[in-house]
């Protein structure tokens, strides 16, 4: 089985999010970058699936050279090889077009990515690539298993879950529950240095939308400390008006 895993290079979850002075760009100074946590789950599951088989896991990232340490980490987790599309990722549409363009020429059995990236929170890439490749896409996948060419998928729905099945190829946006993130071992880290990392030019994509500015949330007012539950219920009723 040939698996493609799309990974995004995002600020560490503990990062404070700040912007440049005109609020048009994310301020990267002092920020640690990681594999998007949901993509890491996707990657770990892919590595599990090919373990002990002749299957391969290719990771693809759309980014400039600064993302290479993140890609090397994915190789250390157990990916076979990697592709970097050499361009700043403008938006989900741009990224999806690059991935679809690359994948069209490769014919993967399974394409995995995280349910969303924790920076721009698009949750768009899986469904966009699915549409561009004319294959099924399932978002917010909690669990999946493959038997021959049939894949059974559990996805999250409001207040519950849905189980569905289809035939490969398919693209999934994975969430917590699919597997536990794999921690690279020393052998993985050593071998990652020499695994193939191909750098390809981006294809042209027309711009459909842009981000004009960012804002930080307004700080909340001072907390009102209360001593008993009756007082709390009373404040929620009369002041906050939520009860």
């Amino acid at each position: 089985m040939r698996i493609l895993v799309c990974i995004s290079h995002v600020p560490d979850t503990t990062s404070k999010i700040t912007f440049n002075s005109d609020h048009t760009e994310f301020n990267q100074s002092g920020v640690q970058f990681i594999i998007n946590p949901y993509d890491e789950i996707a990657l770990s599951r892919a590595v599990e699936l090919v373990e002990g088989t002749d299957g391969t896991v290719t990771v693809i990232n759309v980014g400039d050279a600064s993302t290479e340490p993140t890609i090397r980490k994915a190789l250390a987790v157990g990916a076979t090889d990697a592709v970097r599309i050499d361009a700043a990722p403008r938006d989900a549409w741009f990224v999806a077009k690059q991935i679809a363009h690359y994948a069209t020429e490769q014919s993967y059995d399974l394409i995995l990515t995280g349910r969303e990236s924790i920076d721009y929170n698009g949750s768009q890439v899986a469904a966009l690539v699915g549409e561009l490749l004319h294959i099924p896409s399932v978002s917010i996948v909690k669990k999946f298993d493959i038997q021959d060419r049939e894949i059974t998928i559990e996805r999250e729905i409001e207040g519950g879950k849905e189980v569905l099945s289809t035939q490969l190829p398919v693209i999934l946006g994975t969430a917590e529950g699919v597997t536990e993130p794999k921690i690279p071992n020393m052998r993985g880290i050593m071998s990652a240095r020499t695994k193939p990392l191909q750098v390809l030019p981006a294809v042209d994509v027309p711009t459909l939308s842009t981000i004009s500015k960012y804002e930080s949330p307004a700080p909340r007012g001072q907390v009102a400390m209360v001593d008993d539950v009756e007082q709390l219920v009373n404040l929620l009723h009369t002041k906050a008006k939520v009860l």
């Binding site: 989900a92 549409w93 999806a96 349910r115 969303e116 929170n121 698009g122 949750s123 768009q124 890439v125 899986a126 469904a127 966009l128 699915g130 549409e131 561009l132 896409s137 399932v138 978002s139 917010i140 996805r155 999250e156 729905i157 409001e158 946006g173 459909l208 939308s209």
Partner: peptide
């Protein structure tokens, strides 16, 4: 932008070559 909407909106946008604002 519900769970199902997240899997639907991008496909609609891609079909129409529309810009998508999600969330």
């Amino acid at each position: 932008n519900s769970f199902s909407g997240k899997g639907l909106a991008p496909r609609v946008a891609a079909k129409l070559e529309a810009g998508l604002a999600d969330g």
